[in-house]
Amino acid sequence: MSVNTLRAKVLRSTGLYVAAFATLAFVATPILFAALGGFKDNQQLRENAFGLPSPWNWANYTDVLAAEAFWRQLFNSVFIALVTTFIVVAASAMVAFVFARYNFRGREGLFTLFAAGMMFPFAVAVLPLFIILRTFELLNSPLGVILPQAAFGLPLTIIILRSFFRAIPGEVEEAATIDGAGPWRFFTQILLPMSRPVLATVSVLALVGSWNSYLLPLVVLSRPTWWTLPLGVTQFQGQYSSETAKVLAFVMLAMLPALIFYAFAERHLISGLTSGGTKG
């Protein structure tokens, strides 16, 4: 009996690890291919696809890191993501605040309007957006990417923030009101500081969304001055078509910021993604 249970236990945990490591191999192989491939040259890529690079060829990585374009694109990606996040979180927090804590005519209708925005696939709007941005002369400007991104980020952010703001007990607001705080003061001095975790969560979601954005920058930014990393990677691939190893180095370096960010913000990212998905 006890031998049997022991064997079952060993079998079970062996099975667990086999499945886990098989999945890990599936996940990690492409990324390792990029990371190591960047240290090879074309000949090594062909003849030594799996082994460690020999010799290690640092030139691909150092070339990319020495290129002004890489840093500019990195800066652009970060800048656009930060400003987008600030705008979408600020605007959403304000409107979610009144949705959550005040009663006024048209509130539900307005909220439904925002929430319905979730139903608009971004691709639907990209063509007319292009024409509208053209009219406002926002093409080839970071604002042409930031404002639409922020606008499309509103529904999700508002929904999450509203449900969080609603959960804050009315007594807190009572106390503030007795202290003579108006809505603005309550909002900025009490509500927002209390909401730091959820603000972090929605900020992370907005950052990630902006960071990954491709279609919008692709049509808005036809000039390279404001290109973001995703555009830069595809352009780089076209430019160095014969130097696969160098493209891999660029790909790896373009993935790195997201990986680092994930390592630090994992908790917020996951809680953001699961906050809605597990409800019901």
Partner: peptide, 27 residues
């Protein structure tokens, strides 16, 4: 308290307009 208050229209507008304008214009 949570839902019963009626703030002035100006206050409401200040809180709502940024998001609404953004949403209307770009969505």
């Amino acid at each position: 308290a949570r839902t019963g208050r009626r703030p002035g229209p100006v206050t409401l507008a200040v809180f709502i307009i940024p998001a609404l304008v953004l949403f209307a214009l770009f969505v």
